[in-house]
Computed example of a mutant assay.
Amino acid sequence: MAIETVRVDAQGLAQLAAERPHTLIFYVATMAFVALTLIPHGSRGDLSRQRKIYWGGTFSAAICAFIAALPNISTGLIVAGLCVFCLALPAYFGTQLIKIGDRVVAFESAAALPATADGRDPYTPRVSASKVWWLAVFGVVIGAVNVLGYVIGGDPVAYGLLGLFFFTVPPAVTGLGDGRYRQRVARGQYLQFGIITMLSAGIFTVCYLVAHSVGLRMRQPSR
Rank of each mutant, 00 (worst) to 15 (best):
G101V: 04
P90Q: 04
V127I: 15
E108P: 00
A136K: 01
A91P: 01
G139L: 10
P114C: 05
P90H: 06
S109W: 02
F138S: 07
A106K: 02
A117C: 05
Y150R: 02
S128A: 15
L97I: 07
T95M: 11
Y92P: 03
G149K: 03
G149W: 01
T116G: 09
D118A: 13
Y150P: 00
V137T: 14
G119E: 01
G94Q: 09
F138K: 01
P90K: 05
A136Y: 03
V140N: 03
L113Y: 07
A91E: 02
V127Q: 04
G119Y: 01
A106L: 08
A91Y: 02
V140Q: 05
N146K: 05
V105L: 15
K99L: 08
R103L: 11
L97Y: 01
I142H: 10
V137G: 10
Y92V: 12
T116D: 14
V105E: 11
A106H: 04
G94W: 11
W134Q: 04
A91S: 11
D121M: 12
P114Q: 04
S130I: 04
L113I: 12
T116N: 14
F107C: 01
S109K: 09
V137H: 11
D121W: 02
Y92S: 09
C86Q: 06
A144W: 01
A106V: 10
V151T: 12
A91I: 06
R126P: 00
Y150A: 12
A115F: 10
V132C: 08
I98L: 13
P90F: 03
V140H: 04
V151C: 04
L89V: 15
T95W: 03
G143D: 00
W134I: 09
D121C: 11
V132Y: 06
I98P: 03
K131S: 11
